[in-house]
Write a protein that binds this DNA or RNA. Structure first.
Lengths: 335, 335
DNA sequence: TTCAAGAGAGAAATCGTTTTCTTTTTGTGG
DNA sequence: CCACAAAAAGAAAACGATTTCTCTCTTGAA
């Protein structure tokens, strides 16, 4: 490895001068600066990030808390947004791990000198949630996605508006009996329920209690069960909303097994706007959450918190998505 | 941040002694060592990874080359295997980026002091391939997945055996006219073609040239086109093999549009064993590549190369998968 | 001609560890 | 009680950058 010392000797200047040249700072003449930069390129000099971090106390490294990273497309897409944005701003990302006992997320972030942390999916166990909370209450800059920590910025999809849009869309297609299978209770689910209820009320749609059923995010089997429960209602809904596309597929599977055709006998509506929604037949009507945008906004907000700690005011950012029509919803108006 | 110096003062020992205690080395008495370790825990001391890296020239950091990371489940699953395994071995992973002009993958890896690099998906453009090659020809430990570099270890799914298994499975179900839509030419595709041809030949299955069509990995539209081309054959195949599950769905979409039912009129076989394969109806028959295992093996091999550079001999590791039956393939024997 | 100000250059301290080498302490056998 | 080896402890030099401070040299104004 070629070091700053070697580089400076090759150029016949001091280490200090070379450093200034590479960082474009005052205190070195333009022609010498140029010489240093050219020689650096020729010699294949790269600054040693460890040394820089040690000295400057900035690692240009963002820790990210992600349990079961790739299990579903929703989080993958967010991660992609995070990565792309971090990259162009010169930051690397490090997955924080929680080797139980050994060290937790916070310790990991500290060891690696992370400049800030993004909490995307803290995991479901109590221990994991506690570890995540420790992070959220630490002195590190923290931004979370899809859940809200006291005094911290958060980024979420527009669940409230999203569900209103979905209901509005279905209403326009003539649906009046809409069931809602939702995920586990939490910030996201509460917002969606509120949006759903509000939108239905605004249109005079009655929603019987049995139409609102709890499922689990990203668990097609739970969605299938919930769907079967819905089929027991005396008056069947004309459309079922699912917490995400994966669940929607699970639900459709159950419906098919029960001998119902989608969308002829039952309409289904997903959420997230994943790729599969457009791949399967019938294609899924879904609400595209703009996951890339969510990841992007989260990183930008975190970088803001990192680079201007004083002027920083925590806030909740909402990223709007849009309805994507698909073959899984039937148009009831033409009849 | 509490440093080693503070910790040592608190314990009334020298920095050197404290360091030895924490690293479990010789040169410090057992009771003092215990005191240091306990105090470290109480004070919340974490070693500064930057300082350690600087001094030891080992970063416990693995660079990973991944273009379009999360676009498809196959690579996501590999990444998950990589991450899990790296984590338990104490390594972090850093995504290598190629900010064109600025610096390439190699520069990034060097700056971050990566101990080694995993090349998973170098990207498709010539420039990206060249950058990846620079890495493969560098002095860094490198292991690649799904492609082979001269003098480097690689890990791939068992494409040869995989296709033989698939053909054998289909043969058992009575299929004698099997078409193969394959991906872009490369190490993987060549192996699969070889496995396919060999297995067919071994069973006396004639494969007309028009049954072997080029598509693109992870491109459902290309698969749909290729499928339509196949439908022009005078004698239709009874089953079509696709390069991956995503393509399989694309193909099924095309078949559906052409008025063919799956599996009644045409059987379809995917590859990869992704989650969607089990979610859609009919479920996809597919070949589970054991992506997690591929990622795991790759990391283990890389760590071997890192930690024992002298005794290291490059080799090609093959991870075997298995056939997963599914509703998209029809059993022709019962008739 | 003289002086102050400003730019250009470099010496040296520092960041938090690890590691080598030297010194001190301890324990053992004669 | 002494000599000697072995273990324990510490001092100090790195690792490769950044940054502060000092010093020198121009340059322009008085």
């Amino acid at each position: 490895m070629v070091t700053l010392r070697e580089l400076s000797e090759r150029c016949g200047v001091s280490v200090a001068a070379a450093s200034k040249a590479l960082n474009g700072q005052q205190g070195i003449g333009p022609e010498k600066a140029e010489l240093v930069r050219r020689t650096a390129r020729e010699l294949g000099y790269y600054p040693n990030a460890a040394a820089q971090t040690l000295k400057t106390r900035r690692s240009l490294n963002i820790g990210i808390l992600f349990k079961n990273v790739m299990a579903n497309e929703y989080f993958s897409a967010i991660l992609e947004g995070v990565r792309d944005t971090a990259e162009t701003r010169g930051y690397d990302i490090t997955f924080l791990s929680n080797l139980s006992g050994e060290h937790g997320y916070y310790e990991h972030a500290m060891r690696r000198q992370c400049d800030g942390v993004l909490i995307v999916q803290p995991g479901y166990s109590e221990a994991e949630k506690a570890e995540a909370l420790k992070l959220a209450e630490s002195d590190l800059p923290v931004v979370s996605i899809d859940l809200i920590y006291q005094g911290r910025s958060s980024v979420t999809g527009d669940n409230l508006g999203g569900l209103e849009e979905v209901v509005s869309y279905l209403y326009g297609l003539g649906h009046r009996r809409i069931a809602f299978i939702h995920g586990e209770m939490g910030d996201v689910t509460r917002q969606r329920l509120e949006g759903f209820t509000r939108a239905c009320a605004a249109r005079g749609i009655q929603v019987p209690g049995e139409y609102v059923v709890q499922g689990q995010y990203q668990e097609p089997d739970a969605a299938a069960d919930a769907t079967r429960r819905l089929l027991k209602c005396k008056t069947l809904p004309t459309c079922i909303l699912y917490p995400d596309d994966t669940c929607c597929l699970g639900g459709i599977g159950a419906l098919t097994e029960e001998g119902l055709r989608v969308p002829e006998d039952m309409s289904c509506f997903g959420y997230d706007g994943s790729h599969i929604a457009f791949l399967v037949r019938p294609t899924l009507a879904t609400h595209d959450q703009n996951c890339h945008g969510i990841g992007e906004q989260a990183v930008l907000e975190l970088i803001r918190a990192i680079e201007d700690p004083d002027g920083f005011e925590p806030r909740n950012i909402t990223v709007t998505g849009s309805v994507h029509p698909g073959g899984s919803v039937r148009d009831l108006t033409g009849e």
